[in-house]
Design a protein around this nucleic acid. Structure first.
Lengths: 245, 245
DNA sequence: CGCTATCTTGATATGAATCAATAGCTGTGG
DNA sequence: CCACAGCTATTGATTCATATCAAGATAGCG
């Protein structure tokens, strides 16, 4: 019954009713495939869709006038894309697939209906949306007050923490299909400097990186360097209203 | 009837029903005063409250191990504080008053009840929450890919845009009760460097700053420097469910 | 098998941090 | 009402992290 990866993710947080599950599953019809590099939508363009990631790696990015890019967020299986721009009728960032990705798209109005039918899901979605704020706060802290190596370590750990929801908590080998250029645009450095930092981190036995695989060899040290605070905790359901059906 | 600054803010976006207004107004009882510098709560501590800012200036911040500080967000009249940590049972950042502030505090469960009674408000609150994500995306872009002067310009413009919701769109003189040290901790620089940049910006006729007043003298130039994208737009109500009572 | 993206390395330049010192301002207590 | 304490702001000299410029080396891919 639960073949929806989004439902699976929600069930890690909360015990959904059959009716809630059925209505969420309704959103996951006809997955669409996106090729690596392909855009879901572009910054500034009209956008009315929300996507559930079935599978794959995606990212949200924004360009500056000089052509510099800032990568804002990565998205993995079971996550929602498009909610960040939900307050506006246009996309505030460009979203594209990194690796080939499978997505289920639905119009925003479906989310409105879901909120109306299931008040408890509206609080759940609100909580999950606020987790994105926390992630961004953590990124901002890293960007503003730590050096390049710490920012890279932070990025790796943040990605690992989110990928492990899917792979289990022990996996140290992660599929990370990012180029050094992508890493640079995510942490606000140049690709050249990222190259030197990665080499340094490898020689220090912190990580191993080959092709699209990243291995975290000394995670305690990485956590120390990044001053990483784990966000892997149960979410607080105490304030949620009861499920209505 | 509408003496609630929070309702006033919401009414700028959406035409609330009397019942919605009444239930929101219920949240704004007995404002509490916080002195400059006083903490609402501290990172890591148990926290179950949401606050509506009646009046004043507040900020959210986080400390690093070496004592460095990153300021994450400022809060103004009519805004909600505490939502960012709503997914956890503890505060993920420290929040304190910058200037003397008046707040109305209420437990999270009240928000859950409100969502259950008024589905349309849950979509509205969700949208407003996602605006915070957009703000953070913009900050991240500035931090990762622009230099100190652009980051300062961006901060000033972002503050101005949000203060002008209260003061009207033409005001160029803003009350900004931040020290150079605060500015530095907000944009990820040292106070010394901020001092030099402010002097430079003053001599270029971009701003004037005296004590707690900031004047934006050449806003077009500031926008160019910061590559500032205005976020002042009506929010998209198209996907909201109808009001139920 | 060559093309193009990716990665690597060295030399130099620069924005911002650090170190150090001083001056101004604000509130407080005697 | 003055003097002192403690933030806040200012300025100069030096250092450091990271960017920029330049050139190859690899490696996946059609």
């Amino acid at each position: 019954m639960v073949d929806s990866c989004f439902v699976k993710r929600l069930l890690q947080h909360i015990d959904l009713t059959a009716s809630e599950i059925a209505d969420i599953a309704e959103l996951e019809r006809e997955p669409v495939t996106f090729a690596p590099g392909q855009k879901l939508w572009e910054e500034g363009h009209k956008a009315d869709y929300i996507c559930i990631v079935q599978d794959g790696w995606l990212m949200s990015e924004t360009l500056l006038e000089g052509g510099e890019r800032q990568i804002l967020r990565f998205y993995f299986s079971g996550e929602l894309i498009g909610t960040a721009s939900i307050a506006y009728d246009h996309a505030t960032t460009t979203v594209r697939a990194v690796d080939e990705a499978q997505l289920c798209m639905f119009p925003r109005a479906r989310l409105g209906e879901l909120f109306a039918r299931h008040p408890r899901l509206s609080t759940l979605f609100y909580s999950l949306g606020m987790l994105e704020v926390i992630d961004l706060n953590d990124r901002l802290r890293a960007m503003g007050r730590t050096d390049g190596k710490a920012r890279l370590a932070h990025l790796f750990l943040a990605i690992a923490e989110r990928l492990r929801v899917l792979t289990g908590p022990e996996s140290t080998k992660l599929h990370v299909p990012l180029t050094q250029n992508d890493l640079a645009d995510a942490v606000g450095l140049t690709a050249i400097h990222v190259n030197r930092l990665l080499k340094e981190m490898s020689s220090e036995g912190l990580i191993r990186r080959h092709r699209r695989e990243l291995e975290l060899l000394d995670e305690p040290a990485l956590r120390r360097i990044a001053q990483f605070r784990s966000r892997r905790q149960n979410i607080d359901l105490g304030w949620f209203p009861p499920a209505q059906n």
